[in-house]
Nucleic acid binder design. Structure first.
Lengths: 200, 200
DNA sequence: CTAATATTATACGTTTTTTATATAATTATA
DNA sequence: TATAATTATATAAAAAACGTATAATATTAG
């Protein structure tokens, strides 16, 4: 996620974000000093500090915009006139892609250094979860998800997943992080499909 | 390259080298502080400094041992009773593998910080080149490489390649660094095969 | 061309990180 | 139990990174 072409930023600012995105994904946020972003982007340090108060604000900016864009896409998918399961597939794919970007390393290693960014990240996560819950509730009303599933339970499951994400042994048992993400999503979404009661 | 099992190091030292190898390859040498190697390896800092004077010495150690092992393998290949072209294929494969390890990032980003390591790396490179030249000369004597090729020219070509390696635009035009390495090797070795004069 | 704006290079003081060592306590081993 | 290996902790010094100030240079618009 995060399509910079949609943001209409000044050239230099776009360059900075673009470069930082690359570097952060490759090495993790905390390993990349501001000066390296600037050097790699071919932009002076002063220009960086013109557009962003500091590295945290840059990260916040990227996450916020990326989050907005993924919400937009989420809404688009919901509005499509296709079966529930197809929507789920699209959403899973989207989730997978955005998680590949705001990936393991990218996010996690920075939290230990910056508590407020961690808070911010979790705020975005919460909002994201809430959207998913609405989606499920709506699907329940339409009979696309079994009605005896308590949304609160689903919420608890999602909270547990936040803990699971910190379980390195678990994560490492997957060949890559996306596989893990897919597993989680498969569990959440395909695990709550209406149980087959009779042939149709 | 660099098979730690062959080195018979004390457990903790092996752990340190093994861990450092991983981290350096993933993030580059300069991005990994000694303390992170220790934490990741689950070894105290004092133990690190017991086995290595500093990070440079660790890097030097790894390069030296890796270089020794690759020379051994090089000699083994030369001693095999197989056609010249088969040997070349094996050597190319070996080169490719060892370059994948002492890779782009792994080596290059550190040179700017540590000139003596750069010197050391280049010393190893020179020795390596010299070995290759002997190999070619020997092949010339056997009529496996065209005799009108001047080894000095080959040396010059190899020196130019050292400059080429610093040409980021060129490197980036390959999808990955190994592809570039293969290209270079293909040029050097397959470009000097005896020209077909008549059918045999 | 001129004035306003954006960008850069440089220098700088401050904070943070990293380094490398010293010391004492703990653990493992013969 | 004595010896060696390892750790935890503290610390001074060096290096890296931060963020700002300033002056010079490009760029752009009127």
């Amino acid at each position: 996620m995060l399509d910079l072409s949609k943001l209409n930023l000044p050239e230099k600012q776009r360059l900075i974000v673009d470069t930082a995105l690359d570097l952060f994904q490759q090495f993790g946020i905390k390993r990349i000093p501001v000066e390296e972003i600037c050097k790699t982007a071919g932009v002076s340090k002063m220009t960086f500090y013109k557009y962003f108060k500091n590295k945290n604000e840059l990260v916040r900016f990227m996450w916020e915009k990326g989050f907005e864009q993924s919400l937009e896409k989420f809404d688009e998918i919901q509005a499509l006139d296709i079966p529930f399961e197809k929507k789920l597939q699209l959403i899973l794919k989207m989730k997978e892609e955005s998680t590949a970007k705001i990936s393991h390393q990218f996010a996690l290693d920075y939290f230990y250094a910056s508590p407020d960014l961690k808070d911010f990240f979790e705020k975005l996560s919460r909002e994201s979860i809430s959207r998913f819950l609405s989606f499920i509730k709506n699907a329940q009303e339409k009979g696309e998800v079994r009605s005896d599933l308590r949304p609160e339970f689903l919420l608890a499951v999602i909270n547990i997943i936040k803990i699971m994400v910190k379980d390195e042994a678990l994560i490492n048992s997957y060949s890559n992080y996306q596989d893990f993400v897919m597993e989680v999503n498969n569990f959440i979404f395909y695990g709550v499909l209406p149980r087959p009661t009779s042939e149709e």
